[in-house]
Design a protein around this nucleic acid. Structure first.
Lengths: 174, 174, 174, 174
DNA sequence: TTTT
DNA sequence: TTTT
């Protein structure tokens, strides 16, 4: 028996990217930052930011692509999974992803958005609709745009390590 | 936004009890013990056991009823949920249940059984089959008995604090 | 071996209450609400709020008493622990508390406060200072008031179940 | 605010390695395997094993070095942390470690060992002693060998990806 | 009521 | 490299 569980709350460094597998299933990639701060021995404030590559499949991927944006704060639950890839320099490397099985959108800059997906609290029947401001509630599976739809998600094939995002610091809105 | 998540590993105090809702959905109840030990200020070994009421619905309930037994060690993930009930003395009390959305069977005394259910690691598609000794693997949804089937689960109306559904006793379809 | 772990994010229903044990150790009690929402079979939005009694000891208790207020959003990590008590009607009941071992203050209405206590990320050495708005950072153990100190915490002996808080719905700021 | 929390249960692939920082603090490295299994679309049993690099500091490092061995089953709680290192080929790579803040020894093949360390359930006061078979209980901080002491931990400089401290080899104080 |  |  084993357990491989990760719980993250962080903010997206960029808009999520949604692609589709040959069989039509959606895959969504983005990365989120978590940061820890502490006082060192000299009483100096220290901060360290960690970037986590998130991967979602199917319904969760589509919801993320539809509702998450750069800067969004999100709760992610999933597992750690390594992945080999060929770098631009032709050298094999290993990337680590968090494969998500649950997501909750937290209050982003645009307001008190909150939603839950995944296994839900009530077994399969429970699917909490995304809420953004005064949006009407829509079922989580719905593809209809909410009253004030977000911009279309970017759909592209991301470079191998889904998000090294180390060059965007001055763009990050938090 | 809020989070209400519980992770438990413990042993069943009794066999699980499975009942059926009027709509045919299964409900499973059992309790598991967790214990913590520590040394007090006098270096004396101290132990404290906590009992947790677990409630499962639908597929998870059926799997639990089929494979768990008194003494089984189990990993449970779920949420805390309170429930009012009328005690035998006619006085209202509040019970706390863990409503499970995931379960992993750990090695019990009877062997290295291990299985996972719930959201799974691979989105909905992932359903780990129960394994007991050299059992063949069966899909998690399967109702067929494994090669060496466990005794039939007890099906009864438990006393109040263990019973989340108190209005369906005479609806049980068998 | 067993595991008894609870992760909560919710809002305080009232100001925390801090008391002191005969040995001088602080104890802090408050309750936080978590809520889940879902669409029922008729597409109607449903919501359910759960109240969790939180108990903290020692340093964590003092920090909570100093920085948390009614409405504060907080991340709590701890374990479930039952407790017998004598109700006002003289009848014994069982209450369930979450005994916290870690806390992070999330953004409350008053701004982007964020802090972490408990085991920290860096073993015992890691103690993240409370930040409120533009407060200077102070060590977590510090008892000094921050630049803009919150009102003194209420110190009293709470009634037995630390917070049934079922009568304050229209006061809750979220 | 952010959250970066990992919960793992797995088995050590090798004995843990303990080294000491120039300041005398212990660092322990090992890796544990988690595996997930599922049935693919053809009903074929699939398995995937993931290896996690674990890093511990100070007291936790010493306890791990003393009690864990190849094959030991362990519960680890910590956070994900990336780390740059120079590979043997001179190329920079990124490794991911789980920096542990809590550990529980689960039953290994050699018997029902069980112990808990870290923040404990009772704030700092709670330190569960390691138990191995009929060992007497000793405080977690104790350096004394238990009645039937395990073999001395290996102390060496591991290859890059498993080594978080790569500049202290000649500083080890023994 | 379990388990170590 | 572990374990089931």
């Amino acid at each position: 028996m084993s357990l491989n569980k990760v719980l993250l709350i962080g903010n997206l460094g960029r808009d999520p990217e949604v692609r589709y597998m040959p069989n039509g299933e959606a895959v969504c990639n983005f990365s989120i930052a978590t940061s820890e701060t502490w006082n060192d021995r000299n009483g100096q404030r220290q901060e360290r930011t960690e970037w986590h590559n998130i991967t979602m499949y199917r319904r969760l991927a589509e919801i993320a692509g539809q509702y998450l944006r750069k800067g969004s704060q999100v709760y992610i639950e999933g597992r750690i999974q390594s992945r080999k890839y060929q770098g631009k320099d032709g050298i094999e490397r290993t990337a680590y992803d968090i494969v998500a099985n649950e997501m909750k959108m937290l209050g982003s800059r645009s307001g008190g958005s909150s939603a839950e997906y995944g296994d839900g609290g009530q077994a399969g029947a429970y699917q909490q609709a995304p809420q953004q401001g005064a949006y009407q509630q829509a079922p989580a599976y719905s593809q209809e745009a909410p009253a004030a739809p977000p911009a279309a998600p970017r759909r592209q094939a991301p470079a191998a390590p889904a998000a090294p995002v180390d060059d965007i610091d001055d763009d990050i809105p938090f």
